[in-house]
């Protein structure tokens, strides 16, 4: 082996060593930070659930909703509606301190956002006569600052509170008149549409649960 070749080999060896060392270091750091990251995500989730259902104490995943039957029924309901781009992540029941079931917390993602996926939690209160929306909270929102990002702020978000969770929710641009309408964020129709679709997806999920219970 001549000198040139051996030095090239040495160079490659050194770079490989550096890469390997970085890889091992990264694996190490990844394992250390995995715990805190998971805890943080769980904490964010619980905070979100509390936000949409302030008077509930216990949140538990609804076992039925993880089965294939439910998923298929929900897909069917989605296909029949004009709700698009919605994916159901999970449904939790919200229970009060004494164990009574207050309603559901539905975790949905809508992929038709302007800046990416919008993941929201929708609290649906079912203990009364008619199901109503108890609140919504954002787990992921990456819309334009000052426009789509306004979805996170109370003037828009709180419009959903106490809306009947029976029919589809519609958004209007020139002042709402009906009970199932909300005012769109001006200049951010795509975001409004995505959020409304996500909430409608959650309503559909709750309807599907009710159908299944009958």
């Amino acid at each position: 082996m001549n000198k040139k070749e051996s030095s090239a080999l040495k160079d490659i060896l050194i770079v490989t060593c550096i890469t390997l060392a970085s890889g091992i270091l990264l694996g190490f750091v990844y394992n250390i930070t995995k715990g805190p990251i998971a805890r943080e995500k769980e904490a964010a989730r619980i905070a979100s659930e509390q936000e949409v259902f302030a008077d509930a104490k216990e949140f538990q995943t609804l076992p039925d909703t993880e089965g294939e039957g439910f998923q298929a029924a929900f897909e069917n309901a989605l296909a029949e509606s004009d709700v698009t781009g919605v994916k159901l992540n999970s449904v939790d029941t919200a229970g009060s301190v004494d164990g009574a079931e207050l309603g559901y917390v539905v975790d949905v993602t809508d992929s038709d956002g302007y800046g990416g996926d919008i993941q929201i939690m929708v609290g649906v209160r079912t203990e009364g006569e008619e199901p109503v929306i108890n609140g919504i909270s954002f787990l992921a929102l990456s819309e334009t600052a000052g426009m789509g990002m306004k979805a996170k702020e109370p003037p828009f978000k709180d419009q959903f509170v106490d809306l009947p969770a029976l029919s589809r929710i519609e958004y209007v641009k020139d002042g709402k008149t009906e009970a199932n309408e909300i005012d769109a964020i001006s200049g951010a129709t795509i975001t409004t549409d995505a959020v409304t679709d996500a909430v409608n997806g959650a309503i559909l999920a709750v309807e599907t649960i009710k159908e299944g219970a009958k």
């Binding site: 990264l26 750091v29 930070t33 805190p36 943080e40």
Partner: peptide, 10 residues
């Protein structure tokens, strides 16, 4: 990547 992990966690 390390900073990314730390920020995600903390």
């Amino acid at each position: 990547t390390i900073v990314e992990f730390l920020m995600e966690g903390f």
